[in-house]
C-alpha cells in the first residue's frame, strides 16, 4: 500500500478544510490557558495580602 503523496494536487485542498479547525483549536487552547492563569492569580492574590 503506497501513501497518496505522489500527486498532492488531488488532496491538498483537504488542508483548506482543516485550517479553520486548527486555528480555532489554537485560539481556544490559548484562551483556556489565559483564563486558568487568571484564576490561579486571583486565588493567590488574597493569600499574598494576608499578614
Amino acid at each position: 500500500m503506497t501513501l497518496p503523496l505522489a500527486h498532492a494536487g488531488h488532496w491538498y485542498h483537504v488542508l483548506l478544510y482543516l485550517l479553520p479547525i486548527l486555528l480555532i483549536g489554537a485560539g481556544l487552547w490559548w484562551s483556556n490557558r489565559r483564563e486558568l492563569r487568571r484564576e490561579r492569580e486571583a486565588e493567590q492574590a488574597p493569600k499574598q495580602t494576608e499578614p
Binding site: 483537504v14 478544510y17 479553520p20 479547525i21 480555532i24 483549536g25 481556544l28
Partner: peptide, 17 residues
C-alpha cells in the same frame, strides 16, 4: 464547551469537505 465547539467546527468542516 471549548472542546465541544472545536468538535462541532471539526464536524462541520469535515461534513462540508
Amino acid at each position: 464547551q471549548y472542546w465541544m465547539l472545536l468538535v462541532m467546527v471539526a464536524f462541520t468542516c469535515m461534513g462540508l469537505w
